[in-house]
Write a protein that binds this DNA or RNA. Structure first.
Lengths: 215, 215
DNA sequence: GCAAAAGTGTTGCCCCTACACCCATGT
DNA sequence: ACATGGGTGTAGGGGCAACACTTTTGC
């Protein structure tokens, strides 16, 4: 059916992810340099327009695949953004997600079919982003801090497992505060999200630490 | 800008609310009879297509106003639904909300400008609904049970205040289980969502109960 | 005075926080 | 042996669930 009523005509949906990592104690966000108008040459969150033949989740995973080469990223649904003027081109509603990525998996993939410029930016020093992406990112960070212990959203960060001192540093970077080592360990081990691999790995000290992984 | 790429052409957004009430211990949902195709003459949740000149929240409140006459309903954002074939007419994404309404405010408003047939249905005996609204309603009910103590979503239910025995019955109807009277009172009074009006009101017994209201 | 619902406190359990010392390894 | 981070236990406080008796009112 062709839409003729101008009240509804020419609407579209953006699927957008705030993809985070933590690298050496610094929380970073993956940004993609736009190659087309509008906002050409500006940095933006990962995403794009939804196609007619895919669900929101399918479209989001397609966009992430196209722009980073990564598949099967665990995503947490976040908010919708719908300011009328949020896109200068046509009416676009933004449906957003939050995810985490192992930084080492992306550095090799900066040149993908559709994108030849993506990079990690510390959340402390962000450029002005395309569209309303600064606002989306700011709210995503708040949500991240509130929900970080309630989900296994970090599971993509440690594909090869992690030690507790190592992942604690990641939590501290995200929450921007220090955590008690004993209480943190108790909480993580009680969560049943993680299991002991019976292997060890050295992190910062000389004594090897136990290696865990997400279920 | 005209959209020419068929991948994106003719997309639209539904804003949809599951509007609940509790009447004499029965949880009910407000349904609207559709007057137009598709799904003409079937019952549906409250909502419709988003206009180009309004945010999602504005569009949702407009739809509720048009279909029930009610304004300023407190809504909790819920999920998005995006199955490709969820609308037989064109590609529509559903953005959904959950709300509560005092049943006495709507019974007088069944005939509004755009709708001359709306009614409350017990969630125990629902008709087949238009679109994917049965699925949306089912998931909204689950969410409602999980979040009922975490928000003041019930505030529209008792515009004139409520007694604790009365609102406890409402919680029990929604949760489909009985609650301990002493623990319930402690929890409600500790929540600081509600304040004592210093008035009383009779509910089921002969002894008048204290009247409270939401802040 | 009796029926019917309103109103009230205490205990145990679990989760969370705060806090200090020994252990394993590399040099 | 010493330096460095890895690993562990306990005590107190707050929220939640289980449980029974007294109070107020209408009849």
């Amino acid at each position: 059916m062709e839409v003729t009523n101008t009240k509804y005509k020419n609407q579209g949906i953006h699927v957008i992810s705030a993809l985070f990592t933590v690298d050496k104690g610094i929380t970073k966000i993956l940004l993609i340099k736009r190659e087309n108008e509008p906002y050409k040459n500006m940095w933006a969150l990962t995403g794009g327009a939804l196609y007619n033949d895919e669900t929101l989740e399918e479209g989001m995973h397609r966009e992430i695949k196209e722009k980073t080469g990564l598949e099967n990223i665990f995503l947490k649904a976040f908010q919708n953004f719908s300011r009328v003027e949020r896109s200068p081109v046509m009416r676009m509603i933004a449906v957003t997600y939050i995810g985490f990525i192992d930084i080492h998996k992306v550095t090799l993939l900066k040149q993908t079919e559709k994108t030849n410029n993506c990079d990690w930016f510390s959340i402390e020093s962000l450029p002005a982003l395309a569209y309303d992406h600064n606002e989306i990112l700011e709210k995503a960070l708040e949500e991240l801090k509130e929900s970080i212990f309630e989900s296994d959203i970090l599971k993509n960060l440690y594909p090869n497992g992690f030690t507790l001192p190592e992942i604690q540093k990641t939590y501290e970077a995200i929450l921007e505060k220090e955590l008690d080592r004993r209480n943190f360990r108790k909480k993580m081990l009680a969560s049943h999200f993680i299991i002991d691999t019976l292997k060890t790995k050295k992190f910062e000290g000389n004594k090897p630490a136990k290696l865990y992984k997400f279920k």
